[in-house]
Design a protein around this nucleic acid. Structure first.
Lengths: 337, 337
DNA sequence: TTGAAAGCGCTAACAT
DNA sequence: ATGTTAGCGCTTTCAA
């Protein structure tokens, strides 16, 4: 049978739908509806288990209480952890999350924004990729709350939660230099986002600061579209071709994991004369023998800030104050193991 | 500025909104609207980038092209991987996924169903927990497509995608016995779902079949609400108290990971005289020294079946055929390392 | 071949 | 203090 509507409730209670609507929306007080009426209607609502149709409500009010989350890949542990935390907090504030992975495909990413728009999501949380600038700018000019995190697109004035990537890799590289490493390799991925480039910059700056010449041969670029096995193979090749390498810094955790597979395949010993640091921590690095050092991003803090920023913007969206941007850069931490 | 509506398009094209609507929905042919008209209207739509308001459409048609996904914890790699695959396929069929984690909290789970219902999701994909029977039954009686996966609730007639858990742990236990292990421990979690109980059954049956007496002391129950550290501590205690244990089977991958942390803490050697098998594979188990055997669930197959079942039910929902249930039990595979 | 108009369930301005 | 009613943007029946 069809679900009940506000009309049915009104009929059952012998009142108008307005009264029911006011009570539903907690405006009964303001409208000075009698306490008796309120109690009676609420009883009926509870009794029949009536829940207002959100779609109709959304059409009428223009908000859906839904936040769109766009990330590269929801199955990446970093994004999965953040998604979980965000979802949890959003839920407590009455918002639902609707998400999608871009798979680093610009067309899909653009499509997602359009799709979310047509579904009238109230706000966006985006780990953006290059090429989305225009789309995001459009959202902003419609005064839609948007918070980007993890990555930043240059020239975009938007609230953001970032981690200081330069500092992260700088610390890591520096720690390797201090330990006397001479040929430090850097393994990264070919996605064109500031965040990844910054990780390279940190590496570069640390070398410069220590007057070590940068050897382009020691910087390995892996294609994002590689399968896991392809990446492992490429890395094996890379380390075989460059036996002088005595330390590696990986720009992402999944690259580091592939690296560990390579080393295992090559039977390469990780010890005082061959050191590895990963970006983003992971249980694997704690359990590996030997344990692997990592640059750790503050996942909870990221999620916390992201959701706070969106909620704040969501709350101020219909006020007339000029929207202020919220920006924060968090620090990562080098965990030496 | 406000987004354009179908009215604006109609005005721009000097036609009625009906015509625009027919063209939008591919019904132009059937309504025999002239090709000229179609071309003209389509050109305008493209030019101004008009996208119909899905909320209004949903209110009118009753479908939202949205599927609700309810799992225990989206940040669990098993669920994250499945969510990603499901989301991807759903997207290709024009459906969006809206998800939420129950955190093994029945109230939250029930709330989620109600919330999804009020948002008019077209179908549900649920990894259920005990206590949801009634809510799911209600959905079914409203002819709403529902597919459960990973777990099954007894006495519920619903489409399902399961893995033979009994067989999984049976194989694992048996392989340990064949290797001459005498005191095989079983570490599991206190969530009351068939799937987890089945894993215990498989363990039990294998012991029985091999005429080994079941020693309740060797079966350790961990609370789901433990923090990671608490679990590690409890496990350390457990293995210290029961030094006769020469093999362990973990009922979930995250328990196995905690176990590995314990063993590391205890400096326990994993070798021929102490063997470990995990349920659900994970990169960690491949990289660990020594590598860890695992019962591997066919994640892709699970996702594939789940989405196919929902789509199938979704397609038949307004036909009058009696809805047929789709049920499949997939096999897991013991990966011996 | 196209258009007018009803109505999906709800909110809120306006009326009483 | 409570009711009437216009519309949110769209689909679809019926009429022309």
């Amino acid at each position: 049978m069809k679900p009940l509507s506000i009309k049915d409730i009104a009929k059952k209670a012998n009142v108008s739908i307005t009264t029911v609507s006011f009570i539903l929306n907690g405006k009964a007080e303001k409208m000075r509806i009698s306490q008796d009426m309120i109690t009676k209607v609420e009883a009926i609502i509870k009794e029949v288990g009536f829940r207002p149709n959100q779609v109709a409500r959304s059409l009428r009010t223009g908000n859906t209480n839904t936040i769109g989350l766009i990330v590269e890949d929801i199955s990446n542990p970093f994004f999965a952890a953040i998604a979980r935390l965000i979802e949890d907090k959003a839920y407590k504030h009455g918002y639902k999350i609707i998400y999608s992975s871009t798979e680093n495909n610009l067309d899909k990413a653009k499509g997602l924004i359009r799709m979310f728009k047509s579904r009238q999501v109230d706000g966006y949380i985006i780990a953006p990729m290059a090429g989305m600038e225009e789309d995001i700018r459009e959202l902003l000019s419609a005064r839609t709350p948007v918070v980007v995190f993890d990555r930043h697109l240059p020239g975009l004035e938007v609230s953001s939660v970032l981690v200081d990537n330069i500092k992260g890799t700088y610390m890591a590289t520096d720690s390797l230099i201090v330990k006397g490493m001479k040929n430090i390799a850097f393994v990264t991925v070919d996605v064109e986002v500031e965040q990844i480039k910054d990780r390279y910059k940190g590496y570069e700056q640390a070398l410069k600061a220590n007057k070590i010449e940068i050897n382009p041969k020691l910087c390995k670029l892996i294609s994002f579209n590689n399968t896991a096995d392809e990446t492992t193979a490429e890395l094996t090749q890379f380390f075989t071709d460059n036996p002088e390498i005595d330390a590696v810094l990986f720009a992402t955790n999944y690259l580091a994991v592939r690296g560990l597979f390579s080393f295992r395949e090559m039977n390469k010993k990780l010890n005082g004369s061959f050191k590895v640091i990963a970006y983003d921590d992971h249980d694997i690095f704690k359990l590996h023998s030997p344990t692997i050092s990592a640059v750790d991003q503050p996942i909870e803090e990221i999620a916390e800030n992201v959701i706070n920023f969106v909620l704040k913007e969501l709350a101020s969206v219909d006020s007339f104050e000029k929207k202020e941007l919220n920006n924060v850069v968090l620090s990562s931490r080098l965990i030496e193991r």
